[in-house]
């Protein structure tokens, strides 16, 4: 499943980069993040309670940041499972200079999803994934722009 998106931040790339990869910011902005513990360099164990409306599930998994080149691009690898199913995915994130000192963040995600929730409710999954990604970056945007002022 492809999950792509473009988000604009009113800050320069270095500033955006530092917030996007800040463990505290990640914890605060990942939708439904219950806990997030550093287990190695750029590697976290994470517990999420996430979903849409009342369709929520708890997932345990690993998140790692790889191939990071500040302030240009990085990859975020996710691997999680819970009662409703499992997810594995890679997001390639590029930070691009935009007009007036702003930054455009381009996301190219590729996720594999499975388990009972997908088998029964596959129609909800792609829009839900897109929604959650939007929530994440909008929360990040607030954080970046809030701290910029």
């Amino acid at each position: 499943m492809r999950i792509d998106g473009t988000f604009s931040f009113n800050a320069n790339r270095e500033k955006v980069w530092d917030v996007l990869l800040d463990p505290e910011a990640l914890k605060a902005c990942i939708p439904g993040c219950q806990s997030m513990t550093l287990t190695g360099e750029n590697t976290y164990v994470i517990t999420l309670t996430v979903g849409i409306a009342q369709f929520k599930g708890t997932y345990d998994g690993n998140v790692s940041i790889q191939d990071a080149h500040r302030p240009d691009q990085y990859e975020i690898h996710v691997d999680g499972k819970g009662r409703p199913g499992w997810v594995r995915g890679v997001g390639k994130i590029r930070l691009v200079d935009a007009a007036n000192g702003t930054t455009t963040v381009e996301v190219e995600g590729d996720a594999t999803i499975g388990g009972p929730v997908f088998s029964i409710g596959s129609r909800f999954v792609p829009p839900a994934a897109k929604l959650l990604m939007g929530q994440f970056f909008n929360a990040m945007k607030k954080r970046v722009e809030g701290s910029a002022s």
Binding site: T112, I113, G114, G115, P116, F118, S119, I120, S122, R123
Partner: peptide
Amino acid sequence: NGQLLSGSLMD
């Protein structure tokens, strides 16, 4: 990946 997408009478 072998996920059954038509896993209920909804699909």
